[in-house]
């Protein structure tokens, strides 16, 4: 993390001994990050965002042009994570029951049996989520918010931890179905993957051409670092990190500022404030901090807000992006003091 380098570690010798579980958790998370960076080169920001979402227990939508390693990132995470992993390739003819499951008639027992869909897993990769029509996308609404699936009038809980990681491609509009606002709001983060820097791309090309697979990075050599139980424990630790009222107020002010900001036609809802706080806590844990600072909140503000707001048509015509307007907003909302 960029801030963690400049963040001082205040005189540890004289401090009351920091709680060991937090430090261990931070180490574990950082080790996971290092493992991921072996497979995904040049996308540190996306890796950090994904780890933050993992610790905060939120779903992630990864957006980027083809070939930047969106799917690779999620597959690498699945490889490093000891729990169950399922993948759904979203296609235009995918049906909701293909996602959640359905009842089938068993000839032997002469009864209907529930056949659980791929959502009953820990990590779910929804690849190219905007290629399926809205009804199939809507099949994820319940499970993403309530962590349960209702099949044949029975509410079935999905295993914990449960995370949806979806990818989508922003440039292709032909034959795609934009995600509805309700669905977008359920994603805690929207991560943007950009082209890697020159030296990172050099390293990436060197590594890919050395690997046995023809044109992609191999995730096989990665080691599992985290079990499902570990992750639940990490999430619990992150959720218990102390948070000052001023920092909480800052997070809420940020989300509220989007609602009457002149450049935004649609502001973020209360889920954004919640995601900011949870994301801030996870970020603090990831950098090894003992408490949440305004920097943690501000650091994940773009990823939390960019898919929850809608740009005013005037600025859209001017050619401005949501990110630019949000950066301007972040430059205007006062950070907490004394």
């Amino acid at each position: 993390m960029s801030e963690s380098d400049s963040q001082p570690t205040p005189a540890p010798a004289d401090q009351p001994a920091p709680l060991p579980p937090r430090q261990r958790a931070a180490q574990l998370a950082q080790a996971l990050g290092q493992e991921l960076r072996k497979a995904v080169i040049g996308q540190d920001e996306a890796v950090d965002g994904l780890l933050t979402a993992l610790l905060a227990g939120g779903h992630v939508l990864v957006e980027g042009v083809p070939g930047l390693g969106k799917t690779l990132l999620v597959r690498a995470l699945a490889r490093c994570f000891g729990g169950e992993f399922a993948r759904i390739q979203f296609t235009p003819d995918l049906m909701p029951s293909d996602v959640t499951g359905h009842a089938v008639y068993d000839l032997n027992s002469e009864q209907f049996k529930l056949r659980r869909g791929p959502v009953f897993t820990h990590l779910l990769l929804a690849d190219e989520i905007n290629r399926a029509p809205a009804k199939t996308q809507a099949a994820l609404l319940e499970v993403m918010q309530e962590r349960q699936v209702t099949l044949e009038n029975r509410a079935l809980a999905v295993p914990q931890p449960f995370l949806v990681m979806a990818t989508q491609n922003p440039i292709e509009q032909e034959g795609t179905y934009p995600l509805p606002e309700a669905e977008l709001d359920r994603f805690m983060f929207m991560l943007r993957m950009d082209y890697p820097a020159a030296d990172e791309e050099l390293a990436l090309v060197r590594q890919v051409t050395r690997s046995a697979r023809a044109d992609m990075l191999d995730v096989a050599p990665l080691q599992p670092r985290l079990s499902a139980r570990d992750l639940l424990a990490l999430q619990k630790i992150a959720a218990e990190l102390p948070l000052d009222d001023q920092v909480l107020d800052y997070a809420v002010r940020l989300a509220r500022a989007t609602r009457d900001w002149p450049g935004l036609a649609l502001g973020a809802g209360p889920r954004a404030s919640i995601a900011l706080v949870r994301g801030g806590r996870a970020r603090a844990l990831l950098r090894g901090g003992e408490f949440v600072t305004p920097d943690d909140i501000k650091g994940c503000a773009l990823a939390v807000l960019r898919h929850r707001v809608r740009l005013a048509p005037e600025l859209d015509i001017e050619g401005l992006t949501v990110d630019r307007v949000l950066r301007q907003l972040l430059d205007q909302v006062a950070a907490p003091r004394l």
Binding site: P8, P10, D14
Partner: peptide
Amino acid sequence: LTGYWQQLAYGHRALPPAA
């Protein structure tokens, strides 16, 4: 200084006396 300040303001932790 920033580290100490953050510990006091956001972490609500006591600083070492020598600080």
